[in-house]
Simulated scan of single mutants.
Amino acid sequence: MKKGDLYWAIVIALFTGFVVFPATHEIFVNLTTNHPYIGGFVKFALLATMGELLAIRISTGDWKMPSGVPYRAFIWGFLGIIITLMFQVFAVGVGGALKSGYLPGGDSSFLFAFFVSSIMNLTFAPTFMAFHRYTDTYIDMYYEGKRNIRATDVVSRIDWNGFVSFVLIKTIPLFWIPAHTITFLLPPQYRVLVAAYLSVALGILLALGKRKKK
């Protein structure tokens, strides 16, 4: 066991304690309810970045700080804000479609959760993941010393075959749709907590997908 393993575990344990301990749990729920975008930013900036660090540890056998960590964390935070909004957009949209008969299922909570998860992951998720892959690649290129980086330079650098074959075709149906179906079966106040921990898995899966051929 390396020293970094302990540090990583301590950070996750501290966050978990803040979420689970009754006094601070109420603070966490109130924060994410009253200030959802701030909560979304903090959750994803912290936990998804921790997921990326763990992915590096898994794939290389050692703890290595990726270049541009503050920028990567900021982008994760920004994506956390977008994901927070999309959770609401898709939940309300699917709920309306079920009530109006545009989707089958009526009052079924399982079908509601399944449709939200499926539609969100088959429409929004690929765009979101591609955007993250683009920004991640841009940061890599910048810290390699490249300047005047054009969009075509970044796009040509990305392993789109790996992105489609692993991130989209494998992780969406096999992990994200089932995981978010469970998430949307929970009461709204608990979806925030589940999303926070899924962001760790998100960081791991995207980082491992990026390094799949290395």
Rank of each mutant, 00 (worst) to 15 (best):
M1Q: 06
K2R: 12
G4T: 02
G4P: 05
L6K: 03
Y7D: 03
W8P: 00
W8L: 14
W8E: 05
A9G: 06
V11Y: 10
V11N: 01
L14W: 10
L14A: 15
T16W: 07
F18Q: 00
V20Y: 00
V20I: 14
F21M: 12
P22A: 07
A23K: 13
T24Q: 11
N30F: 10
N30T: 15
L31H: 09
T32H: 13
H35Q: 10
H35P: 00
P36H: 13
I38P: 07
G40T: 05
G40V: 05
A45L: 11
L46N: 07
L47M: 13
G51F: 07
L53V: 01
A55L: 07
I58W: 04
S59T: 15
K64T: 02
K64N: 01
P66S: 05
G68R: 08
G68D: 00
Y71R: 05
Y71T: 04
Y71F: 04
Y71D: 00
A73F: 11
A73N: 05
A73I: 11
G77K: 09
G77Y: 02
F78C: 11
L79Y: 01
I81Q: 13
I82M: 14
L85C: 02
V89W: 12
F90S: 00
A91Y: 14
A91S: 15
G95M: 09
Y102E: 03
P104T: 02
G106M: 06
S108T: 10
S108R: 11
S109F: 12
S109Q: 14
F112V: 09
F115A: 07
F115I: 05
F115T: 10
S118C: 08
S118E: 00
I119W: 03
I119M: 11
N121C: 15
F128R: 06
M129H: 10
A130Q: 04
F131W: 03
F131M: 15
Y134I: 14
Y134K: 01
T135E: 05
D136N: 12
Y138R: 09
Y138W: 13
D140A: 04
D140V: 10
M141Q: 06
Y143Q: 01
G145S: 03
R150V: 04
R150W: 04
D153E: 13
D153Q: 05
V155M: 14
S156M: 09
R157M: 09
I158H: 08
I158A: 01
D159G: 09
W160Y: 09
W160R: 10
N161R: 14
F163I: 11
F163H: 00
F166T: 08
I169P: 06
T171W: 00
T171K: 02
I172D: 05
I172F: 09
I172Q: 02
L174S: 11
W176E: 05
W176H: 09
W176S: 04
P178A: 09
T181C: 08
L185P: 01
L185C: 06
L185W: 01
L185V: 01
L186A: 12
Q189T: 14
R191M: 15
L193K: 11
A195R: 01
A196M: 12
Y197M: 03
Y197F: 15
Y197D: 07
S199V: 04
V200H: 01
A201S: 08
L202E: 06
I204L: 04
K210H: 10
R211E: 07
R211I: 08
K212W: 13
K213M: 05
K213Y: 11
